[in-house]
Simulated assay, not measured.
Amino acid sequence: MYWVSTQHTPVAADELANFEHTYGITLPTPYASFLTQYGPGTYCGLLVIEPPDPQLLQSYADYELWTHDDDNCPITAQQLGECVVIGSSIDGDFLAVHPQVEGLLWLPRHSEVITMKPLDVQTPFTDTLEHILRDEFRKIEPFPRYFEPVSLDRTATFLLFNPPDTAEAYDPANPNDPIPNIAPASIQVLAQRFKQHFDTNLWIENEHTCMAFFQLLGGYVRFNYAYGREVAIIYEPKAIALHDEILSFLQKEHCRVVE
């Protein structure tokens, strides 16, 4: 598992033990171990692992967002408000536990059906998360595994890519070819130029986005392929020198900072 940043905030085991005593619940051992080792954060850019929250679903109990009259539903409508949320997805789904229910509850945002997710207490919590990634997000092996810890210090610089009318395209299929001295015609070409110019620790690219990770940056550079213009530098303040080097490169390639 690649760490986006070494700056993380593990949750104290005593804090979790006090929570269990207060709310009469035993948190899943793999989940608790994950929090005490890594702290809260986002796994693979899709699943957010959070400290246990016993109140979040109480506000949803009266809205009848999920069906409970089916015998296959693992919890009743009353139990919904008693659930403890331990995670969520960037799409708004919830991952929760209930003191009287074995396993993990998946409460989807775009469906009325609550399902159970398998939990093996003998395996790392990341195994459970990867099952969810395959089941709910159709992630197919192999996929990059990375964890982005929650950080109060990490910040971002946002830019807009605006190539001139004279921009020309070139074929990036051969990475050893010299980079032409012309403006990149698209954000995809800009990303390939960036890849040739900088040594990254992890490179993730698909039809929607491209992310270039730097351990020294404590973050990454994101090229928004879907939008076609947005570029973001996510970094920690201590990495300002590398940030400025990356910023200078992007500005020379027709990106301007969004104030």
Rank of each mutant, 00 (worst) to 15 (best):
Y2A: 01
S5Y: 03
T6W: 06
P10R: 09
V11N: 00
A12Y: 07
A12S: 15
A13L: 11
D14K: 14
E15H: 09
N18M: 11
F19Q: 05
F19K: 03
Y23M: 05
G24D: 11
G24I: 06
T26N: 12
Y31N: 01
A32C: 08
Q37M: 07
Q37D: 11
G41A: 07
L47K: 03
L47P: 01
L47V: 14
E50Y: 03
P51W: 03
P51A: 12
D53W: 03
D53R: 06
D53L: 05
P54Y: 07
P54A: 05
L57E: 03
Y60D: 13
D62A: 15
D62G: 09
E64M: 06
W66N: 07
D70S: 12
D71I: 09
C73T: 15
C73I: 06
P74V: 02
T76L: 07
Q78G: 10
Q78K: 15
Q79C: 00
Q79I: 02
L80H: 02
C83S: 08
I90L: 11
D93L: 02
F94C: 01
Q100T: 12
Q100K: 13
E102W: 06
G103A: 09
G103C: 09
G103H: 08
L104D: 02
L104P: 00
L104A: 02
W106C: 04
L107Y: 04
P108G: 10
V113K: 12
I114V: 12
I114K: 03
I114N: 01
T115I: 05
P118C: 11
P118Y: 07
L119E: 04
L119A: 03
V121E: 14
T123S: 13
T123A: 15
F125S: 06
D127T: 14
D127E: 15
I132W: 07
L133A: 03
R134I: 06
D135F: 01
E136Q: 15
R138E: 11
I140T: 12
P142N: 08
P142K: 04
P142I: 05
P144K: 04
R145Q: 12
P149L: 01
V150P: 04
V150M: 15
T155K: 06
T157F: 08
T157L: 13
F158N: 13
L159S: 05
F161L: 01
P163S: 04
D165N: 10
T166C: 06
A167T: 00
A167H: 05
E168F: 00
D171Y: 07
I179P: 00
I179T: 14
P180A: 00
N181A: 13
Q188R: 14
Q188V: 14
Q192N: 13
F194N: 00
Q196N: 11
F198R: 00
F198E: 02
T200H: 12
L202C: 02
W203G: 07
W203R: 09
I204K: 05
I204S: 01
E205R: 11
T209L: 10
T209D: 10
C210Q: 10
F213I: 08
F214R: 05
L216D: 13
G218D: 07
G219K: 00
A226P: 02
Y227E: 14
Y227K: 14
G228A: 07
E230T: 15
I233P: 02
I234A: 13
E236G: 05
E236H: 09
P237K: 06
K238V: 10
A241L: 12
A241H: 13
D244I: 00
D244S: 13
E245Y: 06
I246W: 01
L247R: 11
F249C: 08
K252H: 14
C255Q: 09
V258K: 11
